Simulated scan of single mutants.
Amino acid sequence: MILNGIHHIAIICSDYERSKAFYRDVLGLRVIREVYREERDSWKLDLAIGDQYVIELFSFPNPPARVSRPEAQGLRHLAFAVTDIDEAVQDLQSKGITPEPVRIDPHTNQRFTFFADPDGLPLELYEVSR
């Protein structure tokens, strides 16, 4: 088997409208399509960064909470690449999001920071070379 890349990441949220606004308005992901699946009482929102399909955002009635911190087993975090972390942090702060202090990866010397989505899912901004 040859894997060609990651197709998408699926996220189940507790408050669909709040998470939809966060990923669309705060992070700036573009809505590709939004579908209500009546048989599951579930919304599915497909989101993209630029032209790349990235996230499926789901709502389900009463989803169970998932342990996320500290360092729980399973998905650790979702990282987004940015070219200017200072600008990205400033943008988040202007929208009421307070990221952790920017750190430097000791192995790559790249700068990064963490923040959380409305359900506490850890998100990372990772500065990539221009």
Results as ranks from 00 to 15, higher is better:
Pro70Ser: 13
Thr83Leu: 08
Phe115Ser: 04
Ser14Tyr: 00
Glu87Tyr: 06
Gly28Thr: 04
Leu29Pro: 00
Pro118Ile: 07
Phe58Pro: 04
Val128Asp: 03
His7Val: 11
Glu87Asp: 10
Arg66Val: 12
Leu92Gln: 06
Pro64Ile: 03
Leu27Ile: 10
Pro118Lys: 09
Leu3Asp: 07
Thr113Gly: 08
Ala21Ser: 14
Asp25Glu: 15
Gly74Met: 01
Gly5Tyr: 01
Ala116Trp: 14
Arg103Leu: 13
Arg40Leu: 15
Asp117Leu: 03
Pro118Trp: 02
Leu29Ile: 10
Asn62Gln: 10
Ser42Asn: 12
Gly74Asn: 09
Gln90Tyr: 01
Gly50Arg: 02
Tyr16Ile: 04
Val128Phe: 01
Glu127Leu: 06
Gly5His: 08
Ile55Ala: 05
Leu92Lys: 01
Phe115Glu: 03
Trp43Thr: 03
Leu75Arg: 08
Ser94His: 11
Phe112Val: 02
Ile97Glu: 02
Ile6Glu: 03
Thr113Glu: 02
Leu78Pro: 00
His8Glu: 05
Phe112Ser: 08
Arg103Met: 13
Asn4Ser: 11
Thr83Val: 05
Leu57Phe: 09
Pro106Tyr: 06
Ile85Leu: 06
Phe60Asp: 12
Tyr23Ala: 00
Pro101Asp: 11
Gly120Glu: 06
Asp117Tyr: 09
Pro70Arg: 10
Asp25Val: 00
Gly5Asp: 10
Asp86Ala: 05
Gln110Trp: 12
Phe112His: 14
Ser94Tyr: 04
Ile11Gly: 03
Asn62Thr: 10
Pro122Met: 11
Tyr36Leu: 08
Phe60Gln: 12
Gly120His: 07
Phe114Asp: 09
Leu123Gln: 00
Glu34Gly: 03
Thr108Trp: 09
Asp84Ala: 06
Lys20Glu: 14
Ala79Tyr: 02
Met1His: 11
Leu27Trp: 03
Gln93Tyr: 04
Pro64Ala: 12
Arg103Trp: 14
Asp86Lys: 11
Gln110Ser: 09
Val26Ile: 15
Asp86Ser: 02
Tyr53Lys: 09
Tyr23Gly: 04
Asp25Ile: 08
Gln93Phe: 04
Phe112Tyr: 15
Leu27Glu: 06
Arg18Glu: 14
Ala21Gln: 13
Phe115Leu: 09
His8Ser: 05
Tyr126Asn: 05
His7Leu: 01
Pro122Cys: 08
Glu100Val: 08
Leu3Asn: 09
Glu17Ser: 13
Arg111Gln: 07
Pro118Gln: 09
